[in-house]
Design a protein around this nucleic acid. Sequence first.
DNA 1: CGTGATCTTGAGGGAATTCAATGTCGGTGG
DNA 2: CCACCGACATTGAATTCCCTCAAGATCACG
Lengths: 228, 228
Amino acid sequence: MHTQPMTNRNSFSQVAARATRIPSPAALLGESIELMGAVMPFARNAEIYGENEPAEYLYKVVGGAVRTYKVLNDGRRQIGAFYLPGDVFGLEIGSVHSFSAEAIAECKVMLIKRSTLVALAARSHDVANQLWTMTAKELQRAQGHIMLLIKTAQERVAGFLLEMASRAPAGNTVELPMSRQDIADYLGLTIETVSRTLTQLENSAAISVPSSRRIVLRNQAALTRLNA
Amino acid sequence: MHTQPMTNRNSFSQVAARATRIPSPAALLGESIELMGAVMPFARNAEIYGENEPAEYLYKVVGGAVRTYKVLNDGRRQIGAFYLPGDVFGLEIGSVHSFSAEAIAECKVMLIKRSTLVALAARSHDVANQLWTMTAKELQRAQGHIMLLIKTAQERVAGFLLEMASRAPAGNTVELPMSRQDIADYLGLTIETVSRTLTQLENSAAISVPSSRRIVLRNQAALTRLNA
DNA sequence: CGTGATCTTGAGGGAATTCAATGTCGGTGG
DNA sequence: CCACCGACATTGAATTCCCTCAAGATCACG
């Protein structure tokens, strides 16, 4: 359950100064928010923003993967979410981020200035609606996360695998960008329990694990059953 | 961990037909959303709406208390949130509710038609902003709930008490509208563990429990320390 | 006062954690 | 090329915390 706080000090504030390009509002009506930011690369484990930093930007994963997390004062880390290409994160209502965000692997993230978006939303109901919808989607995701956290270890891992499978491109094979520690901290388990549970699922022929970061769902029905 | 599904069949759809009073949009600019619904009473344990029912309304607690919850297929119940007077619930982006809602005690709830609100939001940025803000608040609450669920029993109970205290009117005394079972299902614990934990906290002089629904926080600092 | 619902307390068991050791993989330098 | 190294993952044994099962205690209500 315990994780040493990571020590990446590629703080975002140094690095995000050049992300302001304001398209004309007119050009945006009916268009997706997605076309209006500057793309930035982040190295593996680099911090994208920190908890309690001002929430100046909204972020969209272009490539790679991102985790958001909080660290309790005794070092326990809880991962709030994993974000894959296409996902938006960093959407907050307050002026500061309530989680920290890090690159799981090398990744590219598009930055969109919050103030721009808010100003735009005041003119375009389309934009306003997208902001609202994205927040609501995050809420649903968080509620799903809550439902995961009350379950047994097997159910949590099964649920996690199904979630990843549903978001991944291909069919039965899940390519995991994150470590066992990340998974454990997402599921509220220890790394050992995650490992053991994967082995159990493999022994029961529900999955196979050709390499530690690649998992094949062999019996999706069995996993779904575990998903309660 | 197991709770029998409640069997209240005071289904909302029968009961909400008369909640449409549309104020002029002009009258609403700069005003709070709060002034535009019909108030309905609900009996203790009455269902306000069910999971997967169409989300036609948005709700605001006027008096009493409400719980939202989901029941897994094996009977485990997870409470998503408790709502006290002033709180808004039932805010969904999709067309159906993702949780069920019940009155914890006799209560009065104001109903606001969703379609009205959405139409209004299209005209008034004020209204649009309030909708977004409320959703974002819910998101924050859910994220806080996630952080609770990864902690020890003591930490969860302490966190719950502090949360209730911060929402309650008065100072050190918390008046709990909900049963031990409700608390247990909110915290992902059993009723016995909640009870034992409260006794522990009482023995360690952090709280006192004059009656089962009334709890006095005697050492808030100790509770906060537990809150990690 | 009974009666049922709710809450507390106790004893025992089980699931996940902790602590510790071993195994595997990818990269780097000899 | 292969040996070594560190990071990551798996496995094992012992412990701990919470759950389960069961019995009492307390409270609200007729």
